[in-house]
Design a protein around this nucleic acid. Structure first.
Lengths: 188, 188
DNA sequence: GTACGCATGTAAACGGTTACATGATTTG
DNA sequence: CAAATCATGTAACCGTTTACATGCGTAC
Protein backbone atom coordinates (compact mmCIF):
# COMPACT_ATOMS: atom_id res chain seq x y z
CA UNK A 1 0.00 0.00 0.00
CA UNK A 2 1.25 3.49 -0.83
CA UNK A 3 2.06 6.24 1.63
CA UNK A 4 -0.66 8.68 2.55
CA UNK A 5 -0.60 11.29 -0.17
CA UNK A 6 -3.36 13.28 1.42
CA UNK A 7 -0.82 14.93 3.65
CA UNK A 8 1.57 17.45 2.17
CA UNK A 9 4.25 19.48 3.78
CA UNK A 10 4.96 23.11 3.10
CA UNK A 11 7.89 25.23 4.15
CA UNK A 12 9.69 23.91 7.19
CA UNK A 13 7.57 21.53 9.21
CA UNK A 14 3.93 22.23 8.58
CA UNK A 15 1.50 19.42 8.13
CA UNK A 16 -1.30 20.03 5.68
CA UNK A 17 -4.03 17.54 6.38
CA UNK A 18 -7.66 17.39 5.34
CA UNK A 19 -8.72 19.95 7.92
CA UNK A 20 -6.11 22.45 6.80
CA UNK A 21 -7.29 22.14 3.26
CA UNK A 22 -10.89 22.51 4.24
CA UNK A 23 -10.11 25.69 6.13
CA UNK A 24 -7.95 27.21 3.42
CA UNK A 25 -10.43 26.26 0.75
CA UNK A 26 -13.47 27.50 2.60
CA UNK A 27 -11.91 30.83 3.37
CA UNK A 28 -10.84 31.01 -0.25
CA UNK A 29 -14.40 30.51 -1.39
CA UNK A 30 -16.14 32.63 1.23
CA UNK A 31 -13.62 35.32 1.98
CA UNK A 32 -12.63 36.25 5.55
CA UNK A 33 -14.44 33.98 7.99
CA UNK A 34 -14.78 33.18 11.65
CA UNK A 35 -14.52 29.59 12.83
CA UNK A 36 -18.24 29.59 13.29
CA UNK A 37 -18.74 30.70 9.71
CA UNK A 38 -16.62 27.76 8.65
CA UNK A 39 -18.59 25.39 10.78
CA UNK A 40 -21.87 26.53 9.28
CA UNK A 41 -20.56 26.50 5.74
CA UNK A 42 -19.10 23.03 6.17
CA UNK A 43 -22.33 21.72 7.62
CA UNK A 44 -24.26 22.93 4.64
CA UNK A 45 -21.94 21.47 2.04
CA UNK A 46 -18.89 19.33 2.65
CA UNK A 47 -20.34 17.59 5.68
CA UNK A 48 -22.48 15.34 3.53
CA UNK A 49 -19.49 13.46 2.32
CA UNK A 50 -17.09 14.43 5.07
CA UNK A 51 -18.33 15.73 8.42
CA UNK A 52 -15.76 17.67 10.41
CA UNK A 53 -16.52 18.25 14.11
CA UNK A 54 -16.60 21.93 14.96
CA UNK A 55 -13.77 21.66 17.43
CA UNK A 56 -11.36 21.16 14.59
CA UNK A 57 -12.48 24.33 12.90
CA UNK A 58 -11.48 26.36 15.94
CA UNK A 59 -8.01 24.96 16.41
CA UNK A 60 -6.90 24.71 12.83
CA UNK A 61 -7.17 28.36 11.73
CA UNK A 62 -4.91 29.40 14.58
CA UNK A 63 -2.30 26.86 13.49
CA UNK A 64 -2.46 28.12 9.93
CA UNK A 65 -2.23 31.72 11.10
CA UNK A 66 0.92 30.95 13.04
CA UNK A 67 2.33 29.45 9.86
CA UNK A 68 1.54 32.64 7.96
CA UNK A 69 -1.13 31.14 5.72
CA UNK A 70 -3.94 33.09 7.34
CA UNK A 71 -4.16 36.55 8.80
CA UNK A 72 -6.25 37.18 11.84
CA UNK A 73 -8.38 40.12 12.82
CA UNK A 74 -9.96 40.29 16.25
CA UNK A 75 -13.34 41.78 16.93
CA UNK A 76 -13.80 43.86 20.05
CA UNK A 77 -16.94 43.70 22.12
CA UNK A 78 -19.79 41.29 21.61
CA UNK A 79 -18.64 37.79 20.87
CA UNK A 80 -15.07 38.90 20.34
CA UNK A 81 -14.65 36.57 17.47
CA UNK A 82 -11.59 36.03 15.40
CA UNK A 83 -11.87 36.50 11.70
CA UNK A 84 -9.33 34.81 9.47
CA UNK A 85 -8.41 35.69 5.91
CA UNK A 86 -6.14 34.10 3.32
CA UNK A 87 -2.71 35.61 3.00
CA UNK A 88 -0.88 35.49 -0.29
CA UNK A 89 1.11 32.55 1.06
CA UNK A 90 -2.13 30.86 2.02
CA UNK A 91 -3.61 31.19 -1.43
CA UNK A 92 -0.40 29.92 -2.93
CA UNK A 93 -0.42 26.91 -0.64
CA UNK A 94 -4.01 26.16 -1.51
CA UNK A 95 -3.52 26.18 -5.26
CA UNK A 96 -0.32 24.20 -4.92
CA UNK A 97 -2.07 21.56 -2.88
CA UNK A 98 -4.79 21.37 -5.50
CA UNK A 99 -2.19 20.69 -8.17
CA UNK A 100 -1.25 17.35 -6.63
CA UNK A 101 -3.95 14.75 -7.28
CA UNK A 102 -4.27 12.08 -4.59
CA UNK A 103 -3.00 8.58 -5.25
CA UNK A 104 -5.82 6.75 -3.56
CA UNK A 105 -9.52 6.25 -3.68
CA UNK A 106 -12.11 6.18 -0.99
CA UNK A 107 -12.45 3.49 1.64
CA UNK A 108 -15.91 2.69 2.88
CA UNK A 109 -15.29 1.96 6.57
CA UNK A 110 -18.90 0.93 6.77
CA UNK A 111 -20.09 -0.97 9.81
CA UNK A 112 -23.19 -2.27 8.08
CA UNK A 113 -21.11 -3.77 5.32
CA UNK A 114 -18.83 -5.34 7.87
CA UNK A 115 -21.85 -6.92 9.50
CA UNK A 116 -23.02 -8.18 6.15
CA UNK A 117 -19.62 -9.71 5.58
CA UNK A 118 -20.12 -11.67 8.76
CA UNK A 119 -23.72 -12.36 7.88
CA UNK A 120 -23.26 -16.11 8.30
CA UNK A 121 -23.78 -15.52 12.00
CA UNK A 122 -27.07 -13.76 11.47
CA UNK A 123 -30.55 -15.11 10.98
CA UNK A 124 -32.40 -14.26 7.83
CA UNK A 125 -34.64 -11.92 9.83
CA UNK A 126 -31.71 -10.05 11.30
CA UNK A 127 -30.17 -9.67 7.88
CA UNK A 128 -33.38 -8.31 6.42
CA UNK A 129 -33.77 -5.90 9.31
CA UNK A 130 -30.25 -4.61 8.79
CA UNK A 131 -30.83 -4.21 5.08
CA UNK A 132 -34.15 -2.41 5.46
CA UNK A 133 -32.71 -0.03 8.02
CA UNK A 134 -29.76 0.81 5.83
CA UNK A 135 -31.93 1.32 2.79
CA UNK A 136 -34.11 3.70 4.75
CA UNK A 137 -31.15 5.65 6.05
CA UNK A 138 -30.02 6.12 2.47
CA UNK A 139 -33.50 7.20 1.48
CA UNK A 140 -33.53 9.97 4.05
CA UNK A 141 -30.03 10.96 3.10
CA UNK A 142 -31.23 11.26 -0.48
CA UNK A 143 -34.04 13.53 0.66
CA UNK A 144 -31.50 15.75 2.33
CA UNK A 145 -29.48 15.86 -0.86
CA UNK A 146 -32.56 16.74 -2.85
CA UNK A 147 -33.38 19.62 -0.56
CA UNK A 148 -29.85 20.92 -0.88
CA UNK A 149 -30.19 20.78 -4.62
CA UNK A 150 -33.38 22.79 -4.70
CA UNK A 151 -31.99 25.24 -2.13
CA UNK A 152 -29.19 26.00 -4.57
CA UNK A 153 -31.47 26.15 -7.55
CA UNK A 154 -31.24 23.84 -10.51
CA UNK A 155 -29.61 26.51 -12.66
CA UNK A 156 -26.16 26.36 -11.09
CA UNK A 157 -26.28 22.61 -10.89
CA UNK A 158 -23.31 22.03 -13.09
CA UNK A 159 -20.80 24.01 -11.03
CA UNK A 160 -17.69 22.44 -9.55
CA UNK A 161 -18.84 22.99 -6.00
CA UNK A 162 -21.99 21.04 -6.77
CA UNK A 163 -20.29 18.10 -8.46
CA UNK A 164 -19.53 16.24 -5.22
CA UNK A 165 -23.19 16.37 -4.38
CA UNK A 166 -24.06 14.69 -7.64
CA UNK A 167 -21.56 11.95 -6.87
CA UNK A 168 -23.01 11.61 -3.39
CA UNK A 169 -26.44 11.13 -4.88
CA UNK A 170 -25.31 8.40 -7.23
CA UNK A 171 -23.50 6.54 -4.49
CA UNK A 172 -26.39 6.83 -2.09
CA UNK A 173 -28.73 5.53 -4.78
CA UNK A 174 -26.44 2.59 -5.43
CA UNK A 175 -26.33 1.77 -1.74
CA UNK A 176 -30.08 2.13 -1.36
CA UNK A 177 -30.67 -0.24 -4.26
CA UNK A 178 -28.11 -2.70 -2.96
CA UNK A 179 -29.65 -2.90 0.47
CA UNK A 180 -33.15 -3.07 -0.98
CA UNK A 181 -32.10 -6.11 -2.95
CA UNK A 182 -30.58 -7.72 0.12
CA UNK A 183 -33.76 -7.03 2.06
CA UNK A 184 -36.02 -8.44 -0.64
CA UNK A 185 -33.93 -11.50 -1.31
CA UNK A 186 -31.45 -12.27 1.49
CA UNK A 187 -28.54 -14.41 0.31
CA UNK A 188 -28.25 -17.85 1.92
CA UNK B 1 -25.52 13.92 14.79
CA UNK B 2 -26.17 10.70 16.64
CA UNK B 3 -23.77 8.94 18.95
CA UNK B 4 -21.40 6.44 17.45
CA UNK B 5 -23.35 3.20 17.37
CA UNK B 6 -20.43 1.33 15.92
CA UNK B 7 -19.07 0.95 19.41
CA UNK B 8 -20.81 -1.37 21.81
CA UNK B 9 -20.00 -2.26 25.33
CA UNK B 10 -20.16 -5.72 26.78
CA UNK B 11 -19.87 -6.87 30.38
CA UNK B 12 -18.06 -4.40 32.56
CA UNK B 13 -15.87 -2.01 30.63
CA UNK B 14 -14.96 -3.52 27.32
CA UNK B 15 -15.05 -1.50 24.17
CA UNK B 16 -16.05 -3.31 21.02
CA UNK B 17 -14.90 -1.31 18.06
CA UNK B 18 -14.49 -2.16 14.41
CA UNK B 19 -11.24 -4.02 14.98
CA UNK B 20 -12.72 -6.18 17.71
CA UNK B 21 -15.55 -7.17 15.45
CA UNK B 22 -13.24 -7.93 12.59
CA UNK B 23 -11.17 -10.20 14.81
CA UNK B 24 -14.12 -11.98 16.35
CA UNK B 25 -15.80 -12.36 13.00
CA UNK B 26 -12.74 -13.58 11.17
CA UNK B 27 -11.94 -16.16 13.78
CA UNK B 28 -15.58 -17.19 13.69
CA UNK B 29 -15.39 -17.75 9.95
CA UNK B 30 -11.93 -19.31 9.79
CA UNK B 31 -11.67 -21.12 13.09
CA UNK B 32 -8.60 -20.76 15.34
CA UNK B 33 -6.20 -18.26 13.82
CA UNK B 34 -2.91 -16.51 14.41
CA UNK B 35 -2.67 -12.77 13.99
CA UNK B 36 -0.86 -13.37 10.77
CA UNK B 37 -3.69 -15.53 9.51
CA UNK B 38 -6.04 -12.68 10.27
CA UNK B 39 -3.83 -10.23 8.47
CA UNK B 40 -3.75 -12.35 5.36
CA UNK B 41 -7.45 -13.13 5.44
CA UNK B 42 -8.30 -9.46 5.90
CA UNK B 43 -6.05 -8.45 3.04
CA UNK B 44 -7.78 -10.84 0.71
CA UNK B 45 -11.31 -9.76 1.60
CA UNK B 46 -12.31 -6.99 3.93
CA UNK B 47 -9.40 -4.75 3.08
CA UNK B 48 -10.98 -3.71 -0.18
CA UNK B 49 -13.59 -1.73 1.61
CA UNK B 50 -11.80 -1.36 4.93
CA UNK B 51 -8.05 -1.84 5.21
CA UNK B 52 -6.82 -2.58 8.73
CA UNK B 53 -3.08 -2.16 9.36
CA UNK B 54 -1.54 -5.38 10.59
CA UNK B 55 -0.40 -3.87 13.86
CA UNK B 56 -3.99 -3.73 15.02
CA UNK B 57 -4.46 -7.41 14.37
CA UNK B 58 -1.69 -8.25 16.81
CA UNK B 59 -2.82 -6.12 19.70
CA UNK B 60 -6.53 -6.70 19.52
CA UNK B 61 -6.68 -10.50 19.98
CA UNK B 62 -4.74 -10.18 23.20
CA UNK B 63 -7.22 -7.62 24.51
CA UNK B 64 -10.11 -9.87 23.61
CA UNK B 65 -8.40 -12.86 25.19
CA UNK B 66 -7.98 -10.94 28.44
CA UNK B 67 -11.69 -10.21 28.30
CA UNK B 68 -12.46 -13.89 27.92
CA UNK B 69 -13.79 -13.67 24.37
CA UNK B 70 -10.89 -15.59 22.87
CA UNK B 71 -8.79 -18.44 24.13
CA UNK B 72 -5.14 -18.55 23.35
CA UNK B 73 -2.87 -21.44 22.56
CA UNK B 74 0.88 -20.92 22.23
CA UNK B 75 3.01 -22.78 19.80
CA UNK B 76 6.39 -23.99 20.97
CA UNK B 77 9.43 -23.90 18.77
CA UNK B 78 9.51 -22.40 15.30
CA UNK B 79 7.76 -19.09 15.09
CA UNK B 80 6.18 -19.52 18.49
CA UNK B 81 2.98 -18.03 17.32
CA UNK B 82 -0.14 -17.48 19.29
CA UNK B 83 -3.29 -19.05 18.00
CA UNK B 84 -6.60 -17.60 19.15
CA UNK B 85 -9.98 -19.29 19.12
CA UNK B 86 -13.50 -18.11 19.92
CA UNK B 87 -14.75 -18.96 23.36
CA UNK B 88 -18.43 -19.46 23.96
CA UNK B 89 -18.55 -15.92 25.35
CA UNK B 90 -16.82 -14.69 22.23
CA UNK B 91 -19.31 -16.31 19.91
CA UNK B 92 -22.13 -14.91 21.99
CA UNK B 93 -20.67 -11.43 21.83
CA UNK B 94 -20.27 -11.68 18.08
CA UNK B 95 -23.84 -12.70 17.36
CA UNK B 96 -25.12 -10.13 19.82
CA UNK B 97 -23.16 -7.41 18.11
CA UNK B 98 -24.56 -8.51 14.76
CA UNK B 99 -28.08 -8.13 16.11
CA UNK B 100 -27.71 -4.38 16.48
CA UNK B 101 -27.81 -2.68 13.08
CA UNK B 102 -25.78 0.55 12.85
CA UNK B 103 -27.56 3.89 12.81
CA UNK B 104 -25.36 5.52 10.26
CA UNK B 105 -24.19 5.23 6.71
CA UNK B 106 -20.79 5.57 5.18
CA UNK B 107 -18.83 8.80 4.89
CA UNK B 108 -16.59 9.22 1.90
CA UNK B 109 -13.63 11.08 3.38
CA UNK B 110 -12.30 11.37 -0.12
CA UNK B 111 -9.47 13.78 -0.82
CA UNK B 112 -10.13 13.86 -4.53
CA UNK B 113 -13.71 14.88 -3.93
CA UNK B 114 -12.56 17.56 -1.54
CA UNK B 115 -10.27 18.90 -4.23
CA UNK B 116 -13.12 18.85 -6.70
CA UNK B 117 -15.20 20.83 -4.23
CA UNK B 118 -12.51 23.49 -4.28
CA UNK B 119 -12.12 23.14 -8.02
CA UNK B 120 -12.63 26.87 -8.55
CA UNK B 121 -8.99 27.29 -7.70
CA UNK B 122 -7.87 24.81 -10.34
CA UNK B 123 -7.30 25.23 -14.04
CA UNK B 124 -9.30 23.14 -16.43
CA UNK B 125 -6.19 21.07 -17.15
CA UNK B 126 -5.58 20.34 -13.51
CA UNK B 127 -9.18 19.32 -13.06
CA UNK B 128 -9.03 16.97 -16.02
CA UNK B 129 -5.79 15.47 -14.79
CA UNK B 130 -7.32 14.84 -11.39
CA UNK B 131 -10.38 13.25 -12.94
CA UNK B 132 -8.44 11.02 -15.31
CA UNK B 133 -6.20 9.83 -12.53
CA UNK B 134 -9.11 8.99 -10.28
CA UNK B 135 -10.95 7.21 -13.06
CA UNK B 136 -7.89 5.09 -13.74
CA UNK B 137 -7.43 4.27 -10.09
CA UNK B 138 -10.99 3.02 -10.02
CA UNK B 139 -10.37 1.01 -13.17
CA UNK B 140 -7.50 -0.85 -11.60
CA UNK B 141 -9.46 -1.35 -8.44
CA UNK B 142 -12.19 -2.90 -10.54
CA UNK B 143 -9.66 -5.26 -12.08
CA UNK B 144 -8.65 -6.34 -8.62
CA UNK B 145 -12.27 -6.96 -7.73
CA UNK B 146 -12.74 -8.99 -10.89
CA UNK B 147 -9.79 -11.20 -10.06
CA UNK B 148 -11.14 -11.77 -6.58
CA UNK B 149 -14.41 -12.82 -8.10
CA UNK B 150 -12.88 -15.36 -10.42
CA UNK B 151 -10.58 -16.61 -7.66
CA UNK B 152 -13.66 -17.45 -5.65
CA UNK B 153 -15.47 -18.95 -8.58
CA UNK B 154 -18.74 -17.66 -9.93
CA UNK B 155 -20.71 -20.43 -8.32
CA UNK B 156 -20.59 -19.12 -4.76
CA UNK B 157 -21.15 -15.59 -5.96
CA UNK B 158 -24.36 -15.06 -4.14
CA UNK B 159 -23.04 -15.79 -0.66
CA UNK B 160 -23.18 -13.27 2.16
CA UNK B 161 -19.42 -12.97 2.36
CA UNK B 162 -19.35 -12.01 -1.28
CA UNK B 163 -22.10 -9.43 -1.12
CA UNK B 164 -19.85 -6.59 0.04
CA UNK B 165 -17.69 -7.19 -3.00
CA UNK B 166 -20.66 -6.74 -5.27
CA UNK B 167 -21.43 -3.45 -3.55
CA UNK B 168 -17.81 -2.41 -3.90
CA UNK B 169 -17.98 -3.09 -7.60
CA UNK B 170 -21.08 -0.99 -8.09
CA UNK B 171 -19.65 1.91 -6.15
CA UNK B 172 -16.33 1.76 -7.94
CA UNK B 173 -18.16 1.72 -11.26
CA UNK B 174 -20.19 4.74 -10.23
CA UNK B 175 -17.05 6.60 -9.24
CA UNK B 176 -15.24 5.62 -12.41
CA UNK B 177 -18.12 6.89 -14.52
CA UNK B 178 -18.39 10.06 -12.52
CA UNK B 179 -14.74 10.95 -12.92
CA UNK B 180 -14.79 9.98 -16.58
CA UNK B 181 -17.57 12.47 -17.12
CA UNK B 182 -15.67 15.16 -15.27
CA UNK B 183 -12.60 14.42 -17.35
CA UNK B 184 -14.48 14.54 -20.64
CA UNK B 185 -16.47 17.64 -19.84
CA UNK B 186 -15.02 19.64 -16.95
CA UNK B 187 -17.58 21.90 -15.28
CA UNK B 188 -16.94 25.65 -15.51
C1' DG C 1 26.07 -20.52 5.22
C1' DT C 2 24.54 -16.23 4.04
C1' DA C 3 21.39 -13.18 2.30
C1' DC C 4 16.94 -11.99 1.49
C1' DG C 5 12.33 -11.75 2.44
C1' DC C 6 8.55 -13.26 5.19
C1' DA C 7 6.43 -13.30 9.67
C1' DT C 8 5.84 -11.33 14.07
C1' DG C 9 5.65 -8.02 17.29
C1' DT C 10 5.93 -3.36 20.02
C1' DA C 11 5.35 1.33 21.14
C1' DA C 12 5.72 6.40 20.45
C1' DA C 13 3.43 10.02 18.16
C1' DC C 14 -0.25 11.98 15.89
C1' DG C 15 -4.82 13.37 14.87
C1' DG C 16 -9.64 13.09 15.74
C1' DT C 17 -13.54 12.67 18.89
C1' DT C 18 -15.82 13.49 22.99
C1' DA C 19 -16.94 16.00 26.65
C1' DC C 20 -17.05 19.73 29.19
C1' DA C 21 -17.29 24.76 30.10
C1' DT C 22 -18.78 29.40 29.64
C1' DG C 23 -20.24 33.87 27.80
C1' DA C 24 -23.51 36.07 24.39
C1' DT C 25 -27.88 36.59 22.38
C1' DT C 26 -32.56 35.83 21.81
C1' DT C 27 -37.24 34.70 23.39
C1' DG C 28 -41.19 34.72 26.33
C1' DC D 1 -35.26 39.45 33.58
C1' DA D 2 -35.18 34.43 33.36
C1' DA D 3 -34.56 30.66 30.62
C1' DA D 4 -33.20 28.64 26.74
C1' DT D 5 -30.33 28.30 23.03
C1' DC D 6 -26.59 29.76 20.19
C1' DA D 7 -21.80 30.57 19.69
C1' DT D 8 -17.21 29.87 21.07
C1' DG D 9 -13.64 27.57 22.86
C1' DT D 10 -10.48 24.07 25.35
C1' DA D 11 -8.44 19.81 26.57
C1' DA D 12 -8.24 15.01 27.92
C1' DC D 13 -8.84 10.79 26.05
C1' DC D 14 -8.59 7.11 22.72
C1' DG D 15 -7.68 4.70 18.54
C1' DT D 16 -4.89 4.53 14.42
C1' DT D 17 -0.92 5.05 12.04
C1' DT D 18 3.86 4.92 11.57
C1' DA D 19 8.10 3.37 12.45
C1' DC D 20 11.10 0.56 14.18
C1' DA D 21 12.99 -3.98 15.57
C1' DT D 22 14.11 -8.65 15.13
C1' DG D 23 13.68 -13.69 14.66
C1' DC D 24 12.57 -17.45 11.43
C1' DG D 25 12.45 -19.88 6.96
C1' DT D 26 14.24 -20.56 2.55
C1' DA D 27 16.66 -20.18 -1.72
C1' DC D 28 20.99 -20.08 -3.87
Amino acid sequence: MSADESVNKVGVELRLGPVSCLVLGMIGLRGPSTPYDLKKAAERSVSYFWPFPHSQLYGEPERLAKAGLLSREDEYGGRRRKRYALTEAGRKTLVTWLQVPPDDIFEMHDMAVLQLFFGEFMTEQELSALARKQANLYRSRLETYASIEVANGKRIDRTRRMAPLRLGIRLAEACRDFWDEIADDPPP
